[in-house]
């Protein structure tokens, strides 16, 4: 069970809507199973000019050469590394933990794509060495625009397991 203040749920939905049709992304922090803060992180794919995007090489951008061509073409968000690092520092300074990453699916359901799972596993291989807790992966789906859906997953050994979300306050 993950407890998330309603205001943060609304903020994630607003973030997703603001960036649609691009995907949004961000970080949630808190203590144990309770989210206390949401950090919007720039999706650098969404800020690229058309000219930059025309030169876009998904593998180079994400440095994820191991992805299949289909998965590379599927890359829809890439966090700005500097902002991600700044958020992690702020989280540490406040004595919170990194609880999860969120991103939006503008046209598909709120479940991890194969690319999401592959990249989550990649992160998993680093995080223990950096002394980070295991993150949950949240997806905001705008598939039904009037009825956004947020779901949270734990991804272990390439298998996503849904964790229920309890809105608070």
């Amino acid at each position: 069970m993950l407890h998330i203040p309603s205001g943060i749920i609304q903020d994630m939905i607003a973030h997703a809507r603001e960036l649609a049709p691009h995907e949004c992304c961000g970080i949630l922090s808190g203590k144990q199973e309770t989210v206390v803060e949401c950090y919007r992180i720039t999706n650098i794919l969404a800020t690229m000019s058309k000219q930059e995007l025309s030169r876009f090489d998904g593998a180079k951008l994400s440095d994820l050469q191991r992805l299949s061509p289909e998965e590379r073409a599927d890359i829809a968000f890439q966090m700005d590394a500097r902002e991600m690092a700044m958020a992690q520092r702020d989280i540490r300074t406040k004595g919170h933990d990194l609880l999860g990453f969120y991103h939006s699916h503008t046209f598909s359901p709120a479940r991890p794509s194969q690319t999401d799972i592959t990249i989550a596993m990649e992160f998993e291989s680093y995080r223990t060495k950096l002394n980070l807790p295991e993150p949950l992966h949240l997806i905001v789906s705008l598939e039904q625009a009037a009825h956004p859906v947020i779901k949270a997953y734990r991804i272990q050994e390439a298998q996503p397991t849904e964790i229920s979300i309890q809105p608070t306050g």
């Binding site: 994820l64 829809a76 991103h103 046209f107 598909s108 794509s113 990249i119 990649e122």
Partner: peptide
């Protein structure tokens, strides 16, 4: 020293 790509994902 650790070299780590920032989180990315698909649609």
């Amino acid at each position: 020293v650790s070299i780590i790509p920032a989180i990315a994902g698909g649609r």
